[in-house]
């Protein structure tokens, strides 16, 4: 079976601003594919091009086998879209919002009643069914938006930062719902800037300044990271930090409690020894240990290592 989404050389500019600078994408079916990237990296613009809301400046897109934007209307029947902002109607109740969306998707009467009831039950919205959407909590709104986006059982769900205003428990529940949908064959593309969410995706693309700077499964990404990660334990971490700043191969330093988490360029020869030498004069008690990369390291390496000077980050 072909990929759910294929894009080649996809680019979009807004006047002088390049939002997406040419990306290739292959999203396999029945998986959760994540877009991880800082704000302004082009996640929303890409998603909007995929559902035909924005016309690409360059490049081709095929969604569920149909070229977009040419066949956007065909694709829209098979697609569910959850906008970054809650965009159902605050002055309609939960049940009215769902009923309206079911009508818009052209479900006939019997199916409509059945689906609306099923979504209200399935997404724990029963208690709030008669409540206006404007009065719902963040978690309830997310569930309602997902319920609305899945009324017509779409083959593909596009979720643009769906959990940005939701507490951790609601986020967990939300991801459980996503895996349930995937189990039924739905393909999900989700954008996020949360590492724990990115960790849950089957595959990930890390976006930076409109480009995909790394792509693969979370495990592959951590394994193939283009950097060396070491951790330093010392009495005077401030002094250690100053000493590390003098090393050109240090790309990023983050403090994690009593430790410093350091990313170094891979091309540096014997990074451990170099760091030890640099620290020797300043913190004689320093313990240096090479550790495995986390997804956050991958993210930092992919979004900052490629170009630009070393910047400190606060974890």
């Amino acid at each position: 079976m072909s990929a759910a989404i294929t894009a080649r050389g996809l680019a979009r500019r807004f006047g002088p601003v390049v939002a997406v600078a040419g990306i290739d994408l292959d999203v396999p079916r029945a998986q959760i594919y994540g877009f991880l990237g800082p704000n302004g990296s082009g996640k929303s613009t890409t998603i909007r091009m995929l559902c035909g809301l924005l016309v690409p400046t360059r490049g081709t897109v095929s969604v569920l086998g149909h070229p977009v934007p040419r066949d956007a209307e065909v694709v829209r029947r098979k697609l569910g879209y959850m906008t970054q902002r809650f965009s159902l109607w605050d002055d309609l109740t939960v049940a009215e919002n769902l009923d309206f969306m079911a009508r818009v998707y052209g479900l006939d009467r019997g199916l409509r009643c059945e689906r609306v009831a099923a979504r209200i039950a399935g997404y724990a919205l029963g208690a709030a069914a008669g409540q206006r959407a404007g009065t719902l909590s963040g978690g309830e709104r997310q569930r309602l938006a997902l319920a609305a986006a899945t009324l017509h059982e779409p083959e593909l769900l596009l979720l643009d930062e769906p959990t940005s205003a939701v507490d951790p428990q609601s986020r967990r529940d939300f991801w459980e719902s996503l895996f349930a949908l995937v189990a039924r064959g739905t393909t999900i593309l989700v954008s996020t800037h949360y590492m724990d969410e990115a960790e849950r995706c089957h595959r990930l693309a890390i976006l930076d300044r409109g480009r995909i700077s790394a792509e693969g499964t979370p495990r592959e990404l951590a394994r193939d990271i283009d950097a060396v990660v070491i951790e330093i334990e010392a009495e005077d971490l401030l002094a250690a930090r100053r000493a590390l700043a003098a090393l050109p191969e240090v790309r990023s330093v983050a403090q994690l409690g009593h430790r410093l988490h350091v990313l170094l360029s891979r091309d540096a020869a014997e990074p451990g020894r170099r760091v030890a030498a640099a620290l020797a004069g300043h913190c004689p008690d320093a313990r240096i240990e090479r550790v495995g990369a986390t997804l956050e390291d991958v993210f930092v390496a992919a979004t900052r290592l490629k170009d630009g000077p070393a910047t400190e980050r606060v974890a």
Partner: peptide, 13 residues
């Protein structure tokens, strides 16, 4: 303004 239109225009309406 409220973003409802972005959702509506991605439906078959």
């Amino acid at each position: 303004e409220r973003g409802n239109l972005e959702l509506l225009i991605t439906t078959p309406v």
